[in-house]
Amino acid sequence: VTLFVALYDYEARTEDDLSAHKGEKFQILNSSEGDWWEARSLTTGETGYIPSNYVAPV
């Protein structure tokens, strides 16, 4: 399991995006899409895309 933590708040801009709150942890499901990674929030269980530069490894 690849875990990352949000460094900043991010507000989803499309229905495919996933909002993130600073300190929230995510499981990365797919990081092969360049700057946008598919992730699952460990807080809400929701999945979507987050900007890779907004997260760091735990």
Results as ranks from 00 to 15, higher is better:
Ala56Gln: 09
His21Val: 13
Val1Met: 13
Ala6Gly: 03
Glu33His: 14
Ser19Tyr: 05
Tyr8His: 08
Ser19Glu: 05
Glu11Val: 13
Ser32Gln: 12
Gly23Trp: 05
Trp36Asn: 06
Ala39Tyr: 06
Thr14Arg: 14
Thr43Arg: 12
Val55Thr: 02
Thr43Ala: 11
Ser32Val: 10
Tyr10Met: 04
Gly48Ser: 00
Arg40Ile: 11
Asp17Lys: 13
Gly48Ile: 05
Leu3Ala: 06
Thr47Met: 08
Tyr10Cys: 03
Ser19Cys: 08
Leu42Pro: 03
Phe26Lys: 02
Thr47Val: 14
Val55Gly: 02
Tyr54Val: 15
Ala39Gln: 00
Leu3Val: 14
Ser41Thr: 00
Trp37Ser: 02
Ile28Lys: 02
Glu24Tyr: 03
Ala56Asp: 05
Val55Ile: 13
Val5Lys: 03
Asp9Ile: 05
Val55His: 00
Glu24Val: 03
Gln27Glu: 14
Tyr49Gly: 03
Thr44Met: 00
Ser19Lys: 06
Ile28Pro: 01
Leu7Ala: 03
Thr47Cys: 09
Lys25Val: 15
Gly23Arg: 00
Phe4Gly: 07
Ile28Asn: 00
Glu33Met: 14
Leu18Gly: 01
Lys25Pro: 05
Phe26Gly: 00
Ala39Asn: 00
Ala20Trp: 06
Ser32Trp: 10
His21Trp: 07
Thr14Trp: 12
Val58Asn: 04
Ala20Ile: 15
Ile50Glu: 01
Glu11Leu: 09
Trp36Val: 09
Leu29Val: 07
Glu46Val: 09
Thr43Met: 10
Thr2Trp: 11
Ala56Met: 10
Tyr54Asp: 02
Thr2Gly: 12
Thr44His: 03
Trp37Ile: 08
Ala56Ser: 09
Ser31Gly: 09
Asp16Arg: 15
Trp37Tyr: 10
Arg13Ala: 11
Thr2Ala: 11
Ala12His: 03
Ser19Arg: 07
Gly45Ile: 03
Val1Gln: 13
Asn53Thr: 10
Glu24Pro: 01
Val5Pro: 03
Tyr49Asp: 01
Asp17Tyr: 13
Asp9Leu: 05
Ser52Gly: 07
Glu46Cys: 14
Ile50Lys: 01
Ser41Asp: 02
Pro51Ser: 06
Glu11Ser: 08
Glu33Arg: 14
Ser41His: 04
Glu24Lys: 00
Ala6Pro: 05
Thr44Val: 00
Tyr8Asn: 06
Thr47Trp: 08
Tyr10Ile: 12
Asn30Cys: 10
Val1Leu: 13
